[in-house]
Design a binder for these strands. Sequence first.
DNA 1: CTTCTGACA
DNA 2: TGTCAGTA
Length: 361
Amino acid sequence: MSDKRNHDPLLSAAECADRLGLTVRALRVYEDRGLIAPRRTEKNWRLYGAAEIARLTEILALKRLGLSLTRITVLLAGAAPDLGQTLTIQQSALVDLRDRVEHSLSLIGAALQKISSGRAVSISELITLAKETRMTDLSPDTVAWRRYEQARPRTEVRFDPEKHGSVVGDFQFEAGDVLSVTRREGGLMAQLTGQNALEIYPEADDLFFYRIVQAQLSFTRNEQGEVEGVVLHQGGYEQAAKRIDETKARAVADDLEKRVKDKIPFPDSEALLRRVIAEHQRGEPDYEGMTPPLAAVAREQAPLAKAELDRLGSLQSVAFKGVLQEGWDVYDVRFEKGTLECGLMLAPGGKLSGIYFRPGL
DNA sequence: CTTCTGACA
DNA sequence: TGTCAGTA
């Protein structure tokens, strides 16, 4: 959660590997190949600084385009006589990979977002959850670059009430959750549905960053120069939200507050849950009834879900427990051979936008 | 507890 | 690249 004020981050091998989604072994291989040359401590431990990370990101980008390590070595060594051929290879590799990549990345993305938004998620848990997102560019190299970009230390600029103050307002994501930006002493706060308000700091005119989480907000304006939307940058992904007026924001917040306080589930929420479970037991989930990102995750997870449901036996009972701060309906679901806690989330249009199951207590 | 090297799958 | 052993 805490950014460790790493202005000139020097990462250990494990930290570096973790941050780039690699393994320490891979780092060693690259080093053996002469692709990187990290400094060492007195104890001969590897140290990765900003330059190494940037370099590794380049390597990863090229690797994900389908290039071999040998080819990458040649490329990065600067001796690339056959750039045309290389580009052709990259192009075909990209085309080949596109579908598969979009598919699996949407799965990973949904899980990552959930994790970074504070809810515990383990991959081994049954199905998984997703938020409606607009992951406009899912190609692996751009995700890698974005992850690096998002992890980079930020420099705060002086807060200018005139300029920066104009982003104050409410913004709604497709899943229905709202980001509210408000003024505070000498700066701004941003609050996501069901979470605490966090301070954000200006980095540029329409660009802000969080300090206690690795995330940024970039605001967009229309032709008239009015702020009309915001993009949340987090975990290598981007989610867009559109500006809504204060009345609507208040209505959304009031509605949620009431749902949480009075434990009011979404309309027909229990029936929907029973239907979803039945569909998964049959192995025929209704993807049309889900938002696209959730559908992508669900397709990936359907076989796992079916296996787990088969193991649990027939459905015995479904008991509504309440509504989480973030708006998820939570149920205890009892099966012949075990129980699950299940949460589900509906997008404003009524489609299922998130669902999770985890072992009941 | 972690990293490092070297060997082998 | 993953993994294991034996160290520092």
